[in-house]
Design a binder for these strands. Structure first.
Lengths: 204, 204
DNA sequence: GTCTATAGCCAGATAGAC
DNA sequence: GTCTATCTGGCTATAGAC
C-alpha cells in the first residue's frame, strides 16, 4: 500500500530531495535515488533527462521553500521589534524542521555561485531597500542606536541560521548530545530576538 | 625557479588543499590534484595511499589551522569586553584571508559528522567551561545582562563566520559586488564587537 | 622516487522490448 | 510509462619499467 499511485514524477523529486540534500550534488547517486523512489534508473532520465536537471529541480524547490520565509524579514509592516521577534521565532522553527535546507543551499551555492542568479529573481532587491529605509528612520528618530542597516540584516540572519550549519562542530565544542542541542535551539527562538533588541534599543 | 624542489609530499598537500577545499571530497578529482602539483596520479598514491587518506590529511590540516584561532575566545585572560573586541577582529581577519576553510570544514563535517571526534580531542571541553564560568561571574556581579553563556558563545561565532559561508547568497540579496562585500566584512571587524557588547553591557 | 600504461570498477545515460 | 540490459566514459588504484 503506502504511497502507491502518486505521481512518479513527484516520487522521484521526493527521493532526489533526500539524497541530494544529504549527499550533495557530487556525492549523490542516481541509483540511490531510484531505489528510494521505488523505481529504476531509466525512469529518472525519462522524467528529468539528466542528473544535472534533476538536481536543479531539487535546488529550485528548496530555494523556493526557503526564500519566502527569509523574505518575511524584509517584507512586513509590523513594528520593528515585533517584526524581529516574529521573524526569529518563525525562522528558527522553520530551520529546525528542515535543517538540511540551509546547509544544502549554502553548500551548493558555494560550489556554483552562478546558480543564484537563476533562482533569486529581483524579488529581494526591492524589499531590502524598504527594510533599510525603515531601519534608518528608526535610527534618526532615536528609537534605536546608530547602526548600519545592512550589518543588522546580516546579524539577524547569521544568528538564526549558523547554529544549524555548524551543529556537528558546536555540539562537540559545547558537549551537547542531539537532544540537548535541540533544546538549545528551542531556547534560541526567544534568546536571539532579545539579544538583537538589547543590542539596538536605546534605553530611556 | 619557483617552488622547484620543495618536498613532493608538500606540493601534493598544497595542491590537494586547493582542490578539496573548492570542490569538496566528492567533487575533487585526483587527476586535477596531480596536475596542480605538477606530477602524475601515481605519485599521489605513492605518498598517500588513497584519496580518502589524502583528504583526511587536508582536513586535519585545515582543522589544525582553524582550531587555535577559534580557541582563543575560550582561552584568554583579558578583560571580557577586550577579549570580544580582539577575538572578533582577529577571527574575521583570519577568515577573510582563508575564506575556504570554514565552508570546507562545515560542509565536510555535515557530510560525515564522525570526523570531528578524530580531530577535536578534548581540548575544547576544558576551555569552554572556563569561559562559561567567567561569563556567569560577570552576570552575577551585574556587569553584563543575565544571559546564557552557551548562547552567547554561539552568537559570537555565528556573527563572525556566517557571512563568509553565505557570501554568494548575501551578496546577491544586498546587491554587493565582490569589492563591496569585502568592504562590508572589513566593517564587521569593529561592528560585530560593538553589537555584541551593546547587547550584553549594562548601562550605569 | 618518478613515470606510463592499464586494470577494474562504477557512474550516468540510452536502446529497445513490453 | 515502465522495465532490463548495455554502452560509454571517467574514476581510483596498481603493476611494472626506469
Amino acid at each position: 500500500m503506502v504511497s502507491s499511485k502518486i505521481n512518479t514524477e513527484e516520487k522521484i523529486l521526493d527521493a532526489a530531495k533526500d539524497v541530494f540534500q544529504s549527499k550533495g550534488m557530487d556525492g549523490a547517486r542516481m541509483q540511490e535515488i531510484a531505489d528510494k523512489a521505488g523505481i529504476n534508473k531509466a525512469m529518472l532520465h525519462y522524467y528529468y533527462r539528466s542528473k544535472q536537471k534533476l538536481f536543479e529541480a531539487v535546488f529550485k524547490n528548496a530555494f523556493t521553500i526557503m526564500a519566502p520565509k527569509l523574505i518575511k524579514i524584509f517584507d512586513s509592516e509590523e513594528p520593528f521589534f515585533e517584526l524581529i521577534e516574529h521573524f526569529v521565532n518563525d525562522y528558527i522553527s522553520f530551520v529546525s524542521k528542515h535543517s538540511y535546507i540551509p546547509i544544502f543551499i549554502i553548500q551548493e551555492l558555494n560550489r556554483n555561485p552562478e546558480m543564484i542568479k537563476e533562482v533569486i529573481a529581483e524579488k529581494f532587491g526591492k524589499v531590502t531597500n524598504s527594510l533599510e529605509s525603515k531601519i534608518e528612520k528608526l535610527v534618526k528618530s532615536g528609537e534605536i542606536r546608530r547602526i548600519s542597516a545592512q550589518q543588522l540584516i546580516i546579524n539577524i540572519i547569521s544568528l538564526c541560521v549558523f547554529p544549524f550549519l555548524a551543529r556537528p562542530l558546536l555540539s562537540e565544542i559545547l558537549q551537547k548530545d542531539k537532544r540537548a542541542y535541540k533544546a538549545l535551539m528551542e531556547e534560541r527562538k526567544t534568546h536571539v530576538s532579545e539579544f538583537i533588541i538589547n543590542a539596538i534599543k536605546i534605553k530611556q
